[in-house]
Nucleic acid binder design. Structure first.
Lengths: 207, 207
DNA sequence: CTGGCTGGTGAGCAAGCGCTTAGGGGCGTC
DNA sequence: GACGCCCCTAAGCGCTTGCTCACCAGCCAG
């Protein structure tokens, strides 16, 4: 299976963990709608319509519209955490791990920019309890990336005077890909990942 | 007048161009509300309430809620354009101009993070005609920054293989400050500006 | 054939939305 | 003191919203 075909399969399986089929179709429809118009501008009628059901059917699978957002946000953040985690725990120098982390993280934000847009820009629409839970996942992501940069600073691979600040900037750069990325744009997700990995390595004074 | 006092004055004068007083109070209230909750989650009753008026009073000064957003977006984007413009047209090397551009642009996004949040993240709530107009201002900002980076690449000051890509990343980095910046955070707007200017200069391979 | 379980529908409710309208108080002008 | 003008309010209209409820088709087990 080629890289493109493999990613196409991942795309269609993005919500594979959500069952039954109707619940998955609703999640998929909601992500599209939320990404396009925003959470508050999306109606439950719109989501149900995109999933090919009546408005009432949504409430068989989810108690509220916010629960749908929470499920999307949870799955999305766990995926993002797993991406950074894989890079952070791999063998190799801090430079190699940082390159891998930024390349895969930025690429994911480009490839899954609809999902990413929802999880990054609709956090405030979550209930306070759900927000707190999601914030925990975000903190873990942040810590993993900071550790890579700290390792590089300690080993002398990087020139990073302000490790927390640099971490913030790197994370911010990757996250914001979700805002501007367009499939009609000149760059593929792979190219975005490669470009951003290069820019970040220069930013930390590696190479 | 010290730098802090001067910026405090600028803050209170951010909407000085909006008259009469009631219209200015409405703009100011709307920015707060839009930044806090988002455009669609904000009600005209909330805006009017924050401005100390009845809901109906809003419609004496603005035809619709969208027109309020449009006024905010227009004024904000013009200010952002003027900041980049001042840096781009100053005397000095590409390195000096880029440092100044990033420092002032990032600092503005931190200092005026409420306004910045509205103009950067509520674009899709504008009417198509208004969006087109604002998009023009955004393109001019982008062009000015790209020209600085291009100048540095041409003169050999920068090592920028992909000028449009690097421009995108720099702009993205500064814009995203509006998303994460908090007055309760550890960094002042000045510090954010200084940090980001350093990081960007490394990113383009200057110094 | 029957009965319950799963996953769906059509209709509609209460609340809240953007926005309008009729009317009024305070002001300077003559 | 009457007038017009500007700025405002109380009330409410028409509509859409998130969500509910009574009901039902298909399907598999006994």
């Amino acid at each position: 299976m080629g890289a493109a075909a493999q990613r196409a399969a991942e795309e269609s399986e993005e919500w594979a963990g959500v069952t039954p089929d109707a619940a998955r179709r609703l999640v998929s429809a909601a992500v599209e709608a939320f990404a396009e118009r925003g959470y508050h501008a999306t109606t439950t009628r719109d989501i149900a319509g995109r999933a090919g059901m009546s408005p009432a059917a949504l409430y068989i699978h989810y108690k509220t519209k916010e629960e749908l957002l929470y499920r999307i946000s949870g799955i999305g953040h766990e995926k993002a955490l797993r991406i950074i985690s894989a890079a952070a725990e791999a063998e190799g120098s801090a430079t190699e791990r940082l390159r891998d982390a930024v390349r895969t993280f930025a690429r994911w934000h480009a490839e899954h920019h609809t999902t990413a847009r929802v999880i990054q820009y609709e956090l405030q629409a979550l209930s306070p309890e759900h927000y707190t839970e999601i914030a925990g996942l975000r903190r873990r992501t942040d810590r993993l990336l900071r550790q890579i940069i700290q390792d590089g600073a300690d080993s002398g691979e990087f020139r990073a005077d302000d490790v927390p600040g640099t971490t913030l900037a790197v994370l911010s750069l990757c996250v914001d890909v979700a805002r501007w990325f367009s499939v009609d744009g000149p760059r593929t997700p792979d190219e975005v990942g490669a470009l951003y990995a290069d820019l970040v390595l220069r930013m930390v004074g590696a190479q």
